[in-house]
Design a binder for these strands. Structure first.
Lengths: 109, 109
DNA sequence: GCAATCGTCAACCGCGAGGTTGAATATGCA
DNA sequence: TGCATATTCAACCTCGCGGTTGACGATTGC
């Protein structure tokens, strides 16, 4: 259980990986398309996707030549519950959050 | 903003640091007392506390010879809000969470 | 003033994370 | 069959993390 929290928090600690998750929030994507906005090699993105996958945050499914990446938001639940024990989370402000996500995307490289 | 998320998630990725936070959830503690249950040097704990402090998750205040560590739960808010965008967080199950925390404490070394 | 206590600093070590490049693998298409 | 496309693998490099130990600085109490 501790291991799983380790993996999830460690995966979320990298801004590239958070940006990838935000992209996948909108739609499933092929690896090549995930990599496109980033200023790094495809192999590097492939490794990031492996980290996310091992943390359970995404799944990958091959369809023909293409591997489709899909968000698995359930994996965040345990970590989110853990954090909420600290109790001071204000009610969700959706507008603030959307600005947030956009900035994540913009800064994602 | 990205930097702050980096720092918070990275700080939370270490089980020793999560155990420290859980201890501080109950009460403020001196550095020496924080270190006591762990099988590592005081210097190592001191570094962990510095990481938590730089992430804003705790504050440290010197009173005499003793430095008191205090949880700053507000720092988790940004990260928690980020996670909640992924939407699948079930309603908080407090019993499950308490079992969770106890296990964190038990496994903390 | 001096010794003891509390905590950090500095130097070091080993290891894994995050990146690169180039070759290998899997699949689709002509 | 053979070439192009999609993705991973393998080897390598660098850097920072998490730990150690020993010296140092701050504070208290005798």
């Amino acid at each position: 259980m501790t291991d799983r929290l380790d993996a999830v928090f460690a995966a979320l600690a990298d801004p590239t990986r958070r940006a990838i998750l935000a992209m996948l929030l909108e739609d499933d994507m092929a690896v090549t398309d995930v990599a496109e906005p980033f200023a790094m090699s495809l192999a590097a993105i492939s490794k990031h996707l492996a980290v996310l996958s091992e943390a359970g945050l995404i799944s990958r499914e091959r369809r023909g030549r293409v591997i489709w990446c899909k968000l698995e938001p359930e994996a965040m639940r345990e970590a989110s519950v853990w954090m909420r024990a600290f109790g001071q989370v204000d009610p969700l402000d959706l507008d603030a959050f959307e600005r947030f996500l956009e900035q994540e995307l913009a800064e994602g490289d």
